[in-house]
Each structure stands twice: as C-alpha cells, then as structure tokens.
C-alpha cells in the first residue's frame, strides 16, 4: 500500500517522509525521480536567511557574533560557499567511488539533508529569547540533536543516491572533506595569481600612459 503511494506523493511530502525515514525516503526519492532542485534551493535560501537572522537577532546572552559587524557576504562564504564546495567535491569523488548520483541529485539531497539544521538555526533564535545563560544546555541540546539528525540524513542521502554500502559512504565523506580543502586551496591560489596578473596589467597600462603623456 505504502509502496504505491510513493508514486503519488507530492515532492514536498517526500521531504517530510525523508526526515523520519532517511534510508527508505532517499531510496524512493531516487527511484521515483521526485528530487526537486527548486525545493533544495528554497532550503538553502532559508538557511542563508536564518543564519543572517541568527547573527542579527539571537538574544544578546547567547549571541556569539556582534550584530554591528554583520557582513552578509561573509555569512554567505561560511554557509552557501561551503555547501557548494562540498557538493562539487562530492561529485568529483563519486566517479572514484562508482557513485551513481548526478550533480543535480547531490545538490538536491544535500540540501534536503540540511533541513533539521536549518530549522534548528531559527529555533535557536526563538528559544534564545526565552532562556537565560544558566539554561544554555537546553539550547545546546536542540543544536546537537539537529546536528546529529542532519549528519545521519547526509550519510543516508549519499548512500542511497550513489547506491553504495555504508562503509563506502563513510570513506566518501572523508574523501569529500579532503577534496573540499583541495578546492579551497586551488581557489585561493587562482585568486592570488589573478590578483598578480591584474596588478601586472594595471602597472603596464600606467607605464604606457606615462610614456605617452610625458
């Protein structure tokens, strides 16, 4: 009965089902081709906004950040950029590991898996208004539960999307982390090289300008 209803389930209902039944959910998601990049994008956008709200309006007692120094580009770097690099890195390594996920699939299931964490970010903001420092354990508890939940979802998502066994999945996660470091290193390298090239061109143009204006 359930098996048949999967086909009729709407895309958003899949998300709800996945949260409580990660392995089954992601398997059916792939099998029925109900992964929705649009929903994934919404989740990521919400994550970004919630992170900004969190830095801006978490209660003073719990806010680790200074709201007056908020920089939304830096927030994007520490949330969205990391996510995209992770997706990219995972996609690269999926070839190594004989994974079957496409880039769009990885992106989608990755964002799906972040849902509990995204919710916990905004939940933390709301709860922080009611709690005081002595009760910080409550807030941390919520964070930890959400974090573990998301990690389990990520493992399930990768395992089912790439059609691997659990050991391979763990290996893939580790490889992905290494890959992320490599990508970030290359980005830094290219950035600084480009800076040099740009400076070189600028200097040359100045020289030429001086040559002809003197």
């Amino acid at each position: 009965m359930k098996r048949q209803s999967f086909a009729q389930m709407s895309k958003i209902n899949y998300l709800g089902y996945i949260l409580l039944h990660p392995w089954d959910g992601f398997q059916e998601l792939k099998y029925n081709k109900k992964a929705s990049p649009a929903i994934a994008t919404v989740i990521l956008a919400l994550w970004y906004f919630f992170e900004i709200i969190s830095r801006q309006s978490t209660d003073f007692a719990f806010n680790q950040f200074r709201p007056e120094t908020l920089d939304i580009f830096k927030v994007a770097l520490s949330t969205l950029l990391i996510f995209f690099v992770a997706v990219l890195s995972n996609w690269c390594f999926s070839t190594f590991m004989d994974g079957n996920g496409s880039l769009a699939e990885i992106y989608t299931v990755g964002a799906y898996a972040l849902t509990p964490m995204v919710v916990s970010v905004i939940l933390n903001v709301i709860l922080s208004k009611f709690f005081v420092l002595e009760e910080a354990a409550m807030l941390n508890g919520v964070q930890i539960v959400a974090g573990i939940w998301s990690i389990v979802l990520i493992l399930a998502a990768l395992q089912e999307t790439h059609e691997l066994n659990f050991g391979q999945t763990v290996a893939m996660v580790l490889l992905t982390l290494v890959g992320m470091l490599a990508i970030l290193f290359l980005v830094m390298l290219v950035y600084s090289l480009f800076q040099q090239v740009v400076m070189f061109v600028v200097n040359i143009s100045y020289e030429i300008m001086y040559r002809f204006t003197m």
Binding site: F60, A61, F130, V132, L133, E134
Partner: peptide, 13 residues
C-alpha cells in the same frame, strides 16, 4: 556583560 544581562533577564522573566 552577558552574565549580568542574563541575571536581569531571568529576573524580568
């Protein structure tokens, strides 16, 4: 001062 703030917040609550 987060500690004192928290004490005041608790009293307020």
């Amino acid at each position: 001062n987060k500690e004192l703030y928290s004490v005041a917040k608790k009293a307020n609550r």
